[in-house]
Design a protein around this nucleic acid. Structure first.
Length: 942
RNA sequence: GGGCGCUUAGCUCAGUUGGGAGAGCAUCGCCCUUACAAGGCGAGGGUCGCUGGUUCGAGCCCAGCAGCGCCCACCA
């Protein structure tokens, strides 16, 4: 083996082997265990969040595969409608072309081409991460069979009236010129103004205080062109007399009523609200209550129309309504129109005042454009009936959130769920299977010919398919069963629905998780998964979101392969619009990564992710941890080298069971049992952080730091018998082999590489560690006496090392040790473990003394004093200082304990065992204190 | 406005039914000891956000406050 660990030399090799041998397929034997991947965008690339979740999913998959379960990790990608269309449009723009330069078919063809060229990125990156999904089952949401499932679901829900079409206000994204769902709108605080406009009263009516106008306050002046009423609170004395009267809408000169509605907050603004039912969701509701007309004044581009479009609720056009708009606004962008309207109010003397005002501005999550509530025809899912069983499934524990608290978020949303707008005015996606005739009748079906046949429409009737596509999340919602072959009745559908656990982030609980639960229950009658493990979100080392604009993004592949500084800077600043920000990012990057990023390898990265996977909601990714775990890999690598150096070509008891286990052998085997039990418990609870710590402590502290050192005296010393040496070799190799299997789910590559070398020396039947069985706890191998005795040994060794360290005695210099006040057990242990002591504490000699000892440095092991005579070693003052430190510590402890035990309440009320324990501790502390003080006095009297 | 989360060592975080404050990194000291200097051995460092309560006993339970963050919601 090479002297140090180089991940590049082993990772690709093993991945290819595994894939070629088809180890990733479900075995067909054992209990089904299935994880569904949250399908990433097909044209995207994996970011740190993916890498993190994939590590968790792969670790679970590998663990269950080794446990003998029939394990499937179902993988695939999402067509991601808007996101993908945006990317392709941007590429076209770079060539000086636009989407609309092409026909729909041509454009979609271009998207498919782009998918072909870039669609492999994700799966290549997954391979680099060591992911082990069944590649043969890789799915894409636009594949034929998944598209078919989408169509079937749409048709079925439409038949049941759950999917319907309607003209309503939707969140309209003017940039994409498409509707988006409520979830895709982000409301953020922004600074704006509250404009106060005067609306003259009609017919000579006056307000209670004699004014001839009302003052309305608005944050959106441009919508006033579509006002159809002014609302006041029914109980508002100021305006009570005006209810039922009219105002003249300025600029438009339309007569509109004053209506009374509870919605109005008397305290806010002037207590008069302009009502624009076609451009505001609240006003829409008010308008509905008062049967006001819907006056649409904006085009899909969010420009003012030349003539308003007027409808009644339900969508029927109103013919005789005054739909005239001032011509100077026709074709004007909404924000230009706003400016002009304000100017016009001002010049007409109708602008009362302008207040600064903080408001929530709705913006499209992808476009960033201000969302416009717009009256359009869209398709909706009436989700209420689907939501009920989905809520119950969680309430009754059929589906469990981990951490549990997330159920509250889920309930809150589900119990207030609104109908889901599923149509999008895009080209890339599942086209809605609906056809219209010239009269505007709608026919839903699998194809035009089916529609014609079912509805007796011959060729004389012209039919046009709906231009819209479905929301991407509509197909994602079917993922749990569509990937298993639904609507066909496949064995997979039977076996892997429900899947075992969904691993995902809380950011898509509504977008995806809730909708999968609803759709899967509706169409299969089963829940989609039994558990939902909600992971935290990966942030940078200070808790900031990783984003291109912040310039703090890390690419998981760069952590695996390493990257030089200039390339990293180039990556982080490429495509930056703002050169100033680019400069800042470059400066920060050069400072933080002066030497670029080292190639840490996949296993170190995965281990870091596991170690960071606590219950926390934000996970701050610290590169220092990756380096630490890379070093840990190197540690394991070298431990394996040591083991192999001492076992290869030797009789390691593989077939010859005639060997003798030392105290160290029995101890490490016991500790291994504890590690297995603890690890499995923690994995069951999805505490990957604790599980990682368990394995880290066992393999590094117990195995490498202690056990390997304890094996040396046996292997290197002729005083030990062949049986003893064989026993130690057997333990060295078998514990390491088991440890590799324990670690494999987390660090697949290095464990396979090492395991393959150990394999010839153990009784292993499988070809690869990834299809070997997971270690099992064996109570009978746990030896409490070995654990106790080793603790004794450690105490003594650490005591001597402490003296060395603190008094600066060279580790190379052997010391003499005297033991005082030893009991029977101490004598027995000394007798049995003298060899270990001498080697690990580097002793010249070790003897028991009865009374007078020379001036010494002192450590305590229980009641036994461990004395290192000072002669020729160190100065007395240093040891006195050291003793003082110890004495101070003990005195503090002593005071605390005696205070506690002096408290009658404690002694009376605390459980007897607790009191006894405290008493014992106090007694111990007192003895230790006395001994150290005695030592100190002795030294000082010299 | 409602809901949720966080606050523990310089940094990033654990702390399991309340009973001796932990890890990794960083820092300091000694050491190139034949697996590993990407290493070994040892050490220092915390009024557990604040206030009050329950309790014999609180990092942990309860109440209030402060700061940070996230989600949801129709104040024009």
């Amino acid at each position: 083996m090479d002297k140090s660990y180089t991940p590049q030399n082993i990772e690709q090799k093993w991945y290819d082997t595994w894939e070629n041998k088809e180890y990733f397929k479900a075995s067909g034997q054992g209990d089904p265990y299935c994880i569904l991947i949250p399908p990433p965008n097909v044209t995207g690339s994996l970011h740190m969040g993916h890498a993190f979740q994939h590590t968790i999913m792969d670790a679970l998959t590998r663990y269950h595969r080794m446990k003998g379960d029939d394990t499937l990790w179902q993988c695939g990608t999402d067509h991601a409608g808007i996101a993908t269309q945006m990317v392709v449009e941007r590429l076209l723009n770079a060539e000086g072309k636009k989407r609309t330069d092409f026909s729909r078919e041509e454009f979609i063809e271009k998207v498919w081409q782009w998918k072909e060229t870039s669609g492999g990125t994700i799966s290549q990156q997954m391979r680099r991460l060591g992911d082990s999904p069944d590649w043969a089952r890789e799915a894409f949401t636009m594949d034929d069979d998944l598209s078919n499932a989408v169509q079937e679901v749409f048709i079925k829900l439409h038949q049941e009236g759950i999917i319907y079409r309607g003209k309503r206000l939707v969140n309209w994204d003017p940039k994409f010129q498409s509707a988006i769902s409520d979830l895709e709108v982000e409301n953020h605080d922004e600074k704006g103004s509250l404009w106060h406009f005067r609306y003259p009263l009609a017919d000579g009516v006056k307000t209670a205080d004699g004014k001839d106008h009302l003052i309305v306050a608005t944050t959106r002046p441009e919508t006033m062109l579509g006002d159809t009423a002014v609302a006041v609170h029914p109980e508002d004395e100021r305006y009570k007399n005006l209810i039922g009267q009219f105002v003249i809408l300025p600029l438009v000169n339309r007569k509109i009523p004053v209506v009374a509605d509870d919605y109005v907050d008397r305290e806010f603004g002037t207590g008069c609200v302009k009502i624009t039912p076609a451009h505001d969701f609240n006003d829409y509701e008010v308008g509905k209550r008062h049967n006001l007309p819907l006056v649409n004044i904006m085009s899909p581009q969010a420009k003012i129309l030349a003539q308003a479009e007027v409808f009644e609720f339900g969508g029927k056009p109103i013919e005789n309504y005054d739909n005239q708009l001032p011509q100077k606004y026709a074709g004007l962008d909404r924000f230009d129109a706003r400016k002009l309207i304000i100017e016009e109010f001002d010049s007409l003397g109708l602008l009362e005042k302008i207040d600064d005002h903080a408001l929530k501005v709705p913006r499209g999550d992808r476009s960033g454009d201000v969302i416009e509530p717009l009256l359009t025809d869209q398709w909706y899912v009436a989700v209420e009936s689907l939501a009920k069983p989905a809520i119950d499934a969680v309430k009754q524990g059929e589906i469990k959130f981990i951490p549990e608290n997330w159920d509250k978020t889920y309930y809150h949303w589900m119990e207030n769920i609104q109908d889901w707008c599923i149509s999008r005015q895009l080209w890339w996606g599942h086209r809605i299977p609906a056809w219209y005739d010239d009269q505007g009748n709608v026919y839903v079906g699998r194809s035009e010919s089916e529609v014609r046949q079912e509805n007796n429409l011959d060729q004389s009737v012209s039919l046009k398919q709906d231009n819209d596509v479905l929301d991407t999340w509509f197909s994602s919602a079917l993922w749990p069963f569509a990937t298993m072959g639904w609507p066909e009745e496949t064995p997979e559908l039977e076996k892997f629905v429900p899947s075992s656990v969904l691993v995902t982030g809380f950011d898509i609980i509504f977008f995806w998780v809730a909708r999968m639960i609803m759709m899967t229950m509706k169409f299969t009658g089963k829940v989609p998964f039994k558990e939902i493990y909600i992971t935290g979100l990966i942030k940078d080392e200070h808790g900031n979101k990783m984003s291109k604009s912040k310039g703090n993004v890390l690419d998981p592949i760069d952590l695996i392969d390493g990257i030089d500084l200039n390339s990293l800077v180039a990556k982080r600043t490429s495509g930056m619009m703002n050169p100033k920000i680019a400069e800042q990012i470059e400066k920060r990057t050069r400072k933080q990564f002066a030497d670029g990023i080292e190639a840490y390898g996949t296993d170190a990265l995965r281990t870091t992710f596991c170690a960071l996977a606590s219950t926390s909601r934000d996970i701050n990714f610290d590169l220092g941890r990756v380096e630490g775990y890379r070093n840990y890999c190197n540690k394991l690598w070298n431990a394996a080298r040591y083991v192999l150096m001492n076992t290869e070509g030797e009789d390691c008891g593989k077939d010859n069971t005639d060997f003798e286990l030392s105290i160290a052998d029995r101890w490490i085997i016991s500790k291994l049992q504890d590690a297995i039990v603890t690890f499995e418990k923690q994995i069951k609870e999805y505490r990957f952080d604790l599980a990682t710590q368990t394995l880290y402590e066992f393999s590094r502290s117990d195995y490498c730091d202690w056990y390997l050192e304890l094996s040396k005296p046996i292997l290197y010393n002729d005083n030990y018998s062949a049986e003893q040496k064989r026993g130690t070799r057997h333990t060295l190799i078998n514990v390491l082999e088991t440890t590799m299997r324990l670690l494999h789910p987390m660090m697949p590559f290095i464990t396979e590489e090492i395991w393959q070398r150990l394999k010839p020396m153990v009784n292993a039947s499988s070809d690869s560690i990834m299809v070997a069985s997971f270690p099992e706890f064996n109570e009978s191998l746990r030896d409490q006496k070995a654990i106790d005795d080793l603790e004794w040994l450690q105490k003594l060794i650490v005591g001597v090392r402490n003296i060395r360290g603190e008094l600066n005695v060279s580790p190379a210099k052997p010391v003499n040790v005297l033991l005082k006040n030893a009991n029977e057990n101490d004598r027995r242990c000394l007798q049995e473990y003298r060899g270990f002591l001498s080697a690990l504490a580097k002793l010249e000699s070790i003897d028991e003394v009865s009374e007078q000892a020379p001036p010494s440095a002192t450590a305590l092991a229980g009641e036994m004093e461990v004395l290192v005579p000072l002669a020729g070693l160190i100065d007395v003052a240093a040891e006195v200082g050291r003793l003082n430190k110890e004495i101070e510590k003990l005195e503090k402890e002593n005071k605390r304990l005696s205070g506690k035990l002096g408290n009658a309440n404690f002694v009376e009320r605390a459980p007897a065992e607790v009191v006894a324990k405290e008493k014992e501790k106090l007694a111990q502390a007192e003895i230790s204190l006395a001994k150290l003080k005695d030592q100190k006095n002795q030294l000082e009297s010299l």
